[in-house]
Amino acid sequence: MTHDNEQQVRKGRHCVSALHAHLVFVTKYRRKVFNDDMLNRLKVILEETCQDFEVNLTEFNGETDHVHLLVEYPPKVQLSKLINSLKGVSSRLMRKEYPEIHRYLWKGALWSPSYFAGSCGGASLEVLAKYIEQQKRPE
């Protein structure tokens, strides 16, 4: 159990980490595709894909034309590979399970090729910079 101000850490054999990323995926042409049922199914697909990478999907939400994910991941995971898998698997399954998507997206892609990925969590950059500056360097 952690306190609100304590960050949860992932312990590996040779590494302790606390890596979090905020991801945003936008539908192709910013088309308004999703309804609540679709977003619920999309969350399950994304959670299952994350598990294959030993990644935790800690938050998920979306609107008709984009989704936000907050993921916690181990250092061995390459974010670009995780993102490609999340987008690829979800696009394939959503288009198969919801054929009506083709009304909005006739070319076969659910997602725009671009995405947003931002690192988050932990101390602010200013706090970290100050901490590193204040280390007792030998003379």
Rank of each mutant, 00 (worst) to 15 (best):
R10S: 12
L19M: 13
E47R: 09
T58N: 14
K76W: 00
H68A: 03
A18V: 05
W106I: 13
F25P: 02
M38R: 00
S17Y: 04
L86R: 04
D37L: 10
V89I: 15
F116H: 11
Y29N: 09
T27W: 03
Y29L: 03
M94N: 01
R41G: 08
Q78E: 06
R31D: 01
H68V: 01
L69H: 09
V77I: 13
D36L: 15
L105E: 02
D52F: 00
S90C: 06
Q7F: 07
A21W: 05
S80C: 13
M38V: 09
A109H: 15
V71W: 02
V24A: 06
A109E: 13
S119V: 14
S90T: 09
Y115M: 07
T64D: 12
N35T: 09
R30W: 06
S119G: 06
S17E: 08
S80I: 11
G12M: 10
E6Q: 15
L82M: 08
T58Y: 03
F25S: 05
N5K: 14
S85L: 03
E59I: 07
V55Q: 00
V55R: 01
Y115R: 04
M38P: 03
E6K: 08
E47I: 02
H102F: 14
E6N: 00
H68T: 04
K81F: 03
V71Q: 02
E48V: 03
H20M: 14
G12K: 02
S119R: 03
K76I: 05
E59C: 13
N84S: 14
M38W: 05
A18I: 07
Q7V: 15
L82N: 08
D36E: 15
S91E: 06
T49P: 05
V33K: 00
G12H: 08
R41C: 11
L57V: 06
R103P: 00
H3P: 00
E63L: 05
Y98A: 00
D37T: 13
F25R: 04
V16S: 11
Y104N: 11
E72L: 01
G88D: 11
A18R: 10
V26G: 00
T64V: 12
K81G: 08
V55D: 02
L19N: 11
